[in-house]
Design a protein around this nucleic acid. Structure first.
Lengths: 219, 219
DNA sequence: TTTAAAATGTAAATTTTTTGTAAAGATTTG
DNA sequence: CAAATCTTTACAAAAAATTTACATTTTAAA
C-alpha cells in the first residue's frame, strides 16, 4: 500500500511517516503540493492521499479538487482547523474523511482501514508475504505484478496462500474448491501456476510438492 | 433516500428526524434495536443506518455486527463516548463513520453525503477515465460523446464503471440491478454495450470477460 | 548399490465448458 | 398497434479443463 503524504510541517511529517511505515505502509511525503501533484499524475501506484490544508503556494482545497479532477484516489484531510465550514468545503471537494488536528495517529490508521474496506469492498486485500489476494478483483499480485490466472488456478493458489505451510492433499484441494477434480488435473494446474510464478521445481520458492501426499505453499 | 435511525433517547430521535426530513430524507426511527433488526431483514429499502451505541437490551456493537452480517448498508455510529477504543471497535465491526456526541446535525448531514458519494459514486457528474456518468440525466458520456443506452444497459455499465477492476458475476449484476436476469440475457446486454462503446472483443479496452466468472471494467 | 514400482512434471492432444452474437420471439411502452 | 426494449435460442468460436503419454524423480526392497 502506497500512501502520499502532503504536509509541510516537517515534525508532523516525520512522525506520520514513521508511524505508517511501522504498520507496513510505504509513504511518499511532500511539503510542496505542486510537486506532489506532478508525481501523482505520472504515478498510478498511489492508494491514498493524506492532505494537510495549510500549505505553502497552494490552498489545500485546490489540491483536493485537482486530485479529484484526475482520479478517484481516496483523500483524507488532516487539518488544524476544526470547524464545520472547512469540513463542508472539504467533503464538497471530494474528500473521503476529515481529521482535525491534533489527532492520535491510531485514529488516522483506523479511518484509513475503513476507507480501504469501502474502496476494496468489505473483504479487503489480504497480504501474504510478497503476495496480495484481492477477492473482489479476483486477482493475485506477486511482488507488485498481477498474475494472469484462470478461475481454478486462482482458487487453488489462494487456498494454498491462505494456509502457508499446510500440506494439502489433492482430495483436500478438490473439497475446498467444491468440485471433483482428478488428481492429475490438479497436478496440471499446479504445474501451470508454478510456471506463472516462475517457480523453480528443483528448488521451489513458493509451491513445494510433498511426495505421496500433495502440495503446500512455503510460508 | 430511506434512513433507519436507531436511538433510544427520544429527544435526540425527534430532533434528528425533523432535521433529516427537512433535507428530504425519509426516516424510520427505532428505540428498540431488536425491532430495528427485524425490520431491516424484511425491508431492502434502507439506504443508511444511524446507530446509537447506548441501547437497551442489546449492545450497539452487536447491532452493528448483525447488520453487517446480512448486508452492506452504510452505518454511521452516533455515540456519547468519544474515545479511540470505541472508534476502533466500531470500525472493526464494519461501521462507515463515527460521530461523537454532541455533534451539530449539519456534520451528520455532510458525512452522510460523503458516504453516499462513495457508495453511489459521486453525486452529479462522476468522471471515470474517459467516461462521465450523469446520474440526473441518466446518461453516460464516452470521451465527450453521449451514449444511447437503454435503461438496463445504463445500469449495468454504470455499475461496472463505478467499480473499476472489480469482477462482477452475473448473479451479482442481477442483485445490484434488483431484478432477476438470466445469465445469457446479461451476456446479451454486455454484447450490446460493447458494440456501443466500439469495444474490441479480441483486445478489449473497456469490458473484459472473466472466463467462468463474469465481467469487469478495465480501470 | 542396483532396480523396479510408484509418484510426479509437463508438452501436446482432446474434451468440455463458457462466451459472442445474430436472429427470432416475447414483453413493455407510448 | 407500432416501436423500442428485453429475453431466449441456436450455433460458431474461444478458452479452460482434463486426459494422455512419456520423461523424470523418489522410494524402498533386493
Amino acid at each position: 500500500m502506497n500512501i502520499f503524504l502532503i504536509e509541510d510541517n516537517l515534525v508532523m511529517q516525520e512522525l506520520l511517516i514513521e508511524y505508517l511505515q511501522n504498520y507496513g505502509y510505504s509513504v511518499e511525503a511532500f511539503d510542496d503540493p505542486i510537486l506532489a501533484l506532478e508525481k501523482l499524475k505520472n504515478k498510478n501506484s498511489c492508494d491514498l492521499v493524506i492532505l494537510d490544508l495549510m500549505l505553502p503556494k497552494m490552498d489545500g482545497f485546490d489540491v483536493c479538487k485537482q486530485i479529484r479532477a484526475q482520479s478517484n484516489i481516496p483523500i483524507i484531510i488532516s487539518s488544524a482547523r476544526d470547524n464545520l465550514g472547512d469540513k463542508v468545503v472539504a467533503f464538497e471537494h471530494g474528500a473521503d474523511d476529515y481529521l482535525a488536528k491534533p489527532y492520535e495517529p491510531k485514529e488516522l490508521l483506523i479511518r484509513m482501514d475503513a476507507i480501504f474496506r469501502r474502496v476494496n469492498g468489505r473483504t479487503g486485500v489480504q497480504k501474504i508475504g510478497i503476495f496480495e489476494i484481492d477477492d473482489n478483483k479476483m486477482q493475485i499480485i506477486q511482488d507488485g505484478h498481477p498474475l494472469e490466472l484462470t478461475k481454478i488456478e486462482y482458487e487453488i493458489l489462494s487456498l494454498l496462500l491462505r494456509h502457508p505451510n499446510q500440506v494439502f492433499s489433492r482430495s483436500l484441494i478438490s473439497q475446498h474448491l467444491n468440485q471433483e477434480l482428478k488428481d492429475r488435473a490438479i497436478d496440471m494446474h499446479i504445474s501451470n501456476i508454478r510456471a506463472k510464478l516462475f517457480d523453480d521445481i528443483k528448488t521451489p520458492m513458493f509451491i513445494k510438492s510433498i511426495w505421496g501426499v500433495g502440495y503446500k505453499f512455503i510460508g
